[in-house]
Simulated assay, not measured.
Amino acid sequence: MNTDNRYPVTASLFMLKEIKHRQEQVNRGYQLLKRKAEALRMRGRQAASELASTQAILGHILREAYISLAAIKFTNGESNALVLENIGQAQIRVQRIPENISGVATVSLQALEEVGAWDSMCYAGLGAGGHRTSEAKKAFREAVRTLVKFASLRNTCILLDESIRSTLRKVNGIEKVIMPKLRNTETYILMEMDEREREEFHRLKMVKAKKVKNQARAVQLRQSASFGGAGETGEGDEAEPDLPPQCEPIECLTSILACSSLSTTTESGDFKPVCYPHNWDDDDLLF
Results as ranks from 00 to 15, higher is better:
261 S>A: 14
15 M>F: 05
214 N>V: 08
283 D>Y: 15
48 A>I: 05
88 G>S: 15
120 S>F: 13
63 R>Q: 06
201 F>W: 04
132 R>P: 02
191 M>K: 05
168 L>H: 06
257 L>A: 11
138 K>W: 00
215 Q>F: 08
285 L>V: 10
257 L>C: 11
282 D>N: 06
285 L>M: 07
264 T>G: 14
87 I>Y: 14
10 T>N: 03
218 A>H: 09
85 E>M: 11
274 V>Y: 09
23 Q>H: 14
12 S>A: 07
19 I>T: 03
17 K>A: 04
41 R>T: 07
166 S>Y: 01
226 S>T: 09
208 K>I: 00
130 G>R: 04
37 A>E: 06
202 H>M: 09
153 L>F: 11
90 A>W: 02
170 K>Y: 12
76 N>E: 02
214 N>Y: 14
100 N>H: 10
7 Y>R: 01
141 R>H: 03
122 C>E: 00
217 R>Q: 09
255 S>D: 06
205 K>E: 11
239 A>H: 01
124 A>S: 05
181 K>F: 14
11 A>M: 01
197 E>D: 09
243 L>S: 10
103 G>R: 13
103 G>E: 04
238 E>L: 13
264 T>E: 11
253 L>K: 11
284 D>G: 06
203 R>K: 11
244 P>I: 13
8 P>S: 10
35 R>T: 02
219 V>M: 14
133 T>C: 05
150 F>H: 05
283 D>G: 08
84 L>P: 00
82 L>H: 15
258 A>D: 13
87 I>D: 01
133 T>K: 05
265 T>M: 11
67 I>Q: 05
124 A>K: 04
171 V>D: 01
235 E>D: 13
65 A>Q: 10
245 P>S: 13
